[in-house]
Simulated assay, not measured.
Amino acid sequence: MNLPSNWTHRVEACKATPLVVHGVSYFPSTCEDKGPGVVIGRWEIDQNEPDCATYWREYTDKGCTSERSGKRRIEHYLENLPVGCDWREFCATTPISFHGMHFTGAQECFQRGLETYGNWELNDPSC
């Protein structure tokens, strides 16, 4: 806030401005100049608060992707998504383990209405 729109060091000012959360000071991981009057900082904060984390639920086996494909499609619903966030980024970076495998995020992300879902295609010889 309060940066002159014609000042050339707006991004540097953002990077030097800490955010205090629960008494701990954090500097932004990135700052972006969006044009006159708008500089956006992004903080990545981990204070071990599970209520603030996204997670996958509602496992759905969508069946074989096609006959003789050798692939089965699994779909999960992404829960606890912050309002106004980049749902694609959260979908691609929320980890999950199922069927004895671990994934760092969904292989494919989409929205149905205002809800976010992730898809995974797994090898399945029965398909």
Rank of each mutant, 00 (worst) to 15 (best):
L3F: 14
P4Y: 11
S5N: 04
S5F: 14
S5P: 06
N6C: 11
T8Y: 04
H9S: 15
H9Q: 14
H9N: 11
V11D: 01
V11F: 09
E12H: 10
A13D: 07
A13V: 13
A13K: 15
C14W: 13
K15P: 01
P18M: 12
V20P: 01
V21K: 13
H22L: 13
H22T: 10
G23R: 05
G23W: 05
S25Y: 11
S25R: 14
P28S: 12
S29N: 13
T30C: 01
C31K: 10
C31Q: 06
E32Q: 15
E32W: 11
D33Y: 05
D33H: 07
P36M: 08
P36G: 09
G37R: 09
V38R: 12
V39C: 03
V39P: 00
V39F: 10
G41N: 01
G41W: 00
R42M: 04
W43V: 00
E44V: 14
I45D: 09
I45P: 02
D46C: 03
Q47D: 11
Q47G: 11
N48V: 12
E49T: 14
D51A: 14
D51N: 13
C52Q: 10
C52W: 10
A53E: 08
T54Y: 03
T54M: 04
Y55G: 05
W56P: 01
R57P: 02
R57C: 07
E58K: 08
Y59L: 13
T60R: 05
T60V: 14
D61E: 07
D61S: 07
D61P: 04
K62P: 02
C64W: 00
T65Y: 07
S66E: 13
E67C: 07
R68L: 11
R68N: 13
G70A: 09
G70F: 06
K71W: 05
R73N: 04
R73W: 03
I74D: 00
I74W: 03
H76W: 12
H76S: 02
Y77R: 14
Y77F: 15
Y77P: 03
Y77G: 03
E79C: 10
E79P: 01
N80K: 12
N80I: 04
L81G: 00
P82R: 09
V83T: 09
V83A: 10
C85Y: 01
C85Q: 04
D86A: 07
W87C: 10
R88D: 05
E89Q: 08
C91F: 08
C91A: 00
T94D: 15
P95I: 03
P95T: 02
P95Q: 00
P95W: 04
I96E: 01
S97A: 15
H99S: 05
H99I: 10
G100I: 06
M101D: 03
M101K: 14
M101G: 00
M101C: 01
H102N: 06
H102G: 01
F103D: 04
F103N: 04
T104P: 01
T104K: 12
Q107E: 14
F110T: 02
F110Y: 15
